[in-house]
């Protein structure tokens, strides 16, 4: 996994509550057996005016001029500002893959859905929870100022505004550690292989039916 330490980038809006992962990446693109290439289909149904299909040349599709991510001022944006319950619905990790592939490194919202939130950390994408009023303020400042950039400092756990004002955020110690160092959490868990084996042996005795194979 790629590491995340500090990032500065243009902020872009996804200005509605309850954005579900079907909206982030529609189902037809989930047929891919790869982990990459989802960027052109991020928010597909909002970004384009037609129905997207896997494998097509997306540069030839009609673009929705009303969708903010299509506006010149948000090109190259890497910090997504979002509303409550971002990433609800399906567990598809294709959602963070698409956000990452499009170039986003951090998402700031008042709240996230649990599975999506967890999936982000596995892909070097940092979801940041800030209070609703602060997120609202960031939205207003972003709308008012073209090229509005935010800095995210994971080590210090702060979002820094262009004015220099900072907002602190919480992050789990373990997730922070993995992100800062780009660590593979499977490798870390396997360091506890003896504990897993010991649990398994005890459990096999208590509840042997759990170890019967399905044939």
């Amino acid at each position: 996994m790629k590491a995340f330490t500090q990032h500065k980038g243009i902020a872009a809006p996804m200005d509605r509550a309850n954005v579900d992962t079907d909206l982030i990446i529609p189902k037809q693109f989930l047929k891919s057996i790869k982990r990459s290439g989802f960027g052109p289909n991020l928010f597909d149904e909002l970004r384009y005016l037609d129905e997207g299909q896997p494998g097509q040349d997306h540069s030839k599709r009609p673009v929705n001029p009303d969708f903010p991510l299509n506006h010149p001022r948000y090109q190259g944006a890497s910090v997504l500002l979002a509303r409550k319950n971002f990433g609800c619905g399906s567990s598809r990790e294709h959602a963070p893959w698409a956000l990452d592939d499009h170039g986003f490194r951090a998402i700031i919202a008042p709240s996230f859905a649990d599975i999506f939130f967890n999936n982000c950390f596995k892909n070097g994408l940092l979801p940041i929870v800030l209070e609703e009023e602060i997120v609202e303020q960031l939205f207003q400042e972003m709308y008012a100022e073209e090229g509005y950039e935010l800095t995210v400092d994971l080590e210090a756990q702060v979002v820094i505004k262009p004015s220099g004002e900072t907002h602190a955020f919480e992050v789990d110690t373990f997730r922070k550690h993995c992100l800062l160092h780009g660590l593979d959490d499977i490798g870390l868990t396997l360091e506890d292989a003896d504990d897993i084996r010991a649990y398994e042996a005890k459990r096999r005795e208590q509840a042997p039916w759990l170890f019967d194979a399905v044939k």
């Binding site: 567990s91 990790e93 963070p96 599975i115 967890n118 999936n119 596995k122 892909n123 959490d185 499977i186």
Partner: peptide, 8 residues
């Protein structure tokens, strides 16, 4: 769970 957790 997500796909990374499927692998995990």
């Amino acid at each position: 769970i997500g796909t990374s957790e499927v692998e995990h």
